[in-house]
Amino acid sequence: MSAKTGSAGSSAAEPVAVIGGSCRLPGGVDSLDSLWDLLVEEQETAKPVPTDRWDAEAIAAGLPDRMARRMRLGGFLEGDLGAFDAQAFGLSGTEANWLDPQHRLLLMVAWEACENAGMPIDGLRGSQTGVFAGMYAMDNYLRGHRPDQDSSAYWYSGGMHGVGMGRLSLMLDLHGPNMGVDTACSSSLAAVHLACQAPRAGECPTALVGGVSAGLGPEVGAASSE
């Protein structure tokens, strides 16, 4: 997730500055500095599937060799994806419990990106800051997670792409354009394109832009390998 700024209403050739960012990526990358170190050192982040995620060997056993090799490796975030300071965002424990992990990651890295850019959240509240973010499939739906009657509304709002983006603007009180982007593998790149256009079109002077994709199980990978 990055914070970008430009001159509202500027020409198509006017530069757009990236003024801060934050990330959570495989290989223990949790900051721009650690991302830079990984790139400079040319580290490989694909690792064998951790045993506490799923039984990769059991899945690979029923697949052709070329597919089986793919199912034994993956890019995994370190730590607990469920860890989330709900109180910081004014969310109840029940609502936070039903947030798709991708929604949680989006909120956390957006907050950190603003801090990294030297733009504290309190200073952005009420501003015309825009939000453009890519998001892919929701594993809470694909994996059949279903709520009881008392939490059905939270399950619905906690798993929709558009609600994830809207919640970010709502929680941070950002009044600029808000757009969730899903173009499959190019979602984040498409979001960056839109976020660069917005200041030039006079839609907002500053924007949060990025993307999130976190697969909780092997289903999507197995289906894609076919």
Rank of each mutant, 00 (worst) to 15 (best):
154 Y>G: 02
155 W>F: 10
155 W>I: 01
155 W>E: 04
155 W>H: 06
156 Y>R: 07
156 Y>L: 14
156 Y>H: 12
157 S>V: 10
157 S>D: 05
157 S>G: 05
157 S>W: 03
158 G>Q: 01
158 G>H: 00
158 G>E: 01
158 G>M: 01
158 G>S: 00
158 G>Y: 01
159 G>P: 01
159 G>D: 00
159 G>I: 00
159 G>E: 01
160 M>F: 07
160 M>Y: 02
160 M>V: 05
161 H>N: 08
161 H>W: 09
161 H>T: 08
161 H>L: 15
162 G>P: 04
162 G>L: 08
162 G>Y: 02
162 G>V: 06
162 G>I: 02
162 G>M: 05
163 V>G: 04
163 V>H: 04
164 G>W: 01
164 G>V: 05
164 G>T: 07
164 G>L: 02
164 G>F: 02
165 M>C: 13
165 M>L: 15
166 G>D: 08
166 G>S: 04
167 R>G: 13
167 R>N: 14
167 R>Q: 14
167 R>L: 14
167 R>I: 04
168 L>V: 02
168 L>I: 02
168 L>E: 00
169 S>N: 04
169 S>A: 14
169 S>P: 06
169 S>V: 05
169 S>M: 05
170 L>Q: 15
170 L>K: 04
171 M>S: 12
171 M>R: 13
171 M>H: 08
171 M>Y: 03
172 L>N: 00
172 L>F: 10
172 L>A: 03
172 L>W: 01
172 L>D: 00
172 L>H: 01
173 D>V: 09
173 D>N: 14
173 D>A: 11
174 L>E: 02
174 L>G: 02
174 L>I: 01
174 L>C: 03
175 H>M: 10
175 H>V: 03
175 H>G: 00
175 H>D: 08
176 G>D: 08
176 G>T: 00
176 G>L: 01
177 P>V: 14
177 P>L: 11
177 P>G: 14
178 N>F: 06
178 N>G: 14
178 N>A: 15
179 M>V: 14
179 M>E: 03
179 M>L: 15
179 M>A: 11
180 G>H: 05
180 G>T: 15
180 G>R: 03
181 V>A: 08
181 V>Y: 06
181 V>W: 01
182 D>I: 05
183 T>D: 13
183 T>N: 10
183 T>Q: 09
184 A>F: 10
184 A>R: 03
184 A>G: 11
185 C>Q: 09
185 C>T: 13
185 C>I: 14
185 C>E: 13
186 S>N: 11
186 S>T: 12
187 S>F: 08
187 S>G: 12
187 S>K: 07
187 S>M: 08
187 S>Y: 09
188 S>C: 11
188 S>T: 13
188 S>D: 13
188 S>V: 10
189 L>P: 11
190 A>G: 07
191 A>T: 06
191 A>K: 05
191 A>D: 13
191 A>N: 04
191 A>G: 03
191 A>M: 09
192 V>C: 15
193 H>Y: 15
193 H>N: 11
193 H>L: 13
193 H>M: 12
193 H>D: 15
194 L>M: 15
194 L>W: 06
195 A>L: 04
195 A>V: 13
196 C>Y: 07
196 C>P: 04
196 C>A: 15
197 Q>M: 12
198 A>S: 14
198 A>M: 03
198 A>Q: 03
199 P>R: 08
199 P>D: 07
199 P>M: 14
199 P>V: 12
200 R>H: 11
200 R>L: 06
200 R>E: 10
200 R>S: 03
200 R>W: 09
200 R>Y: 07
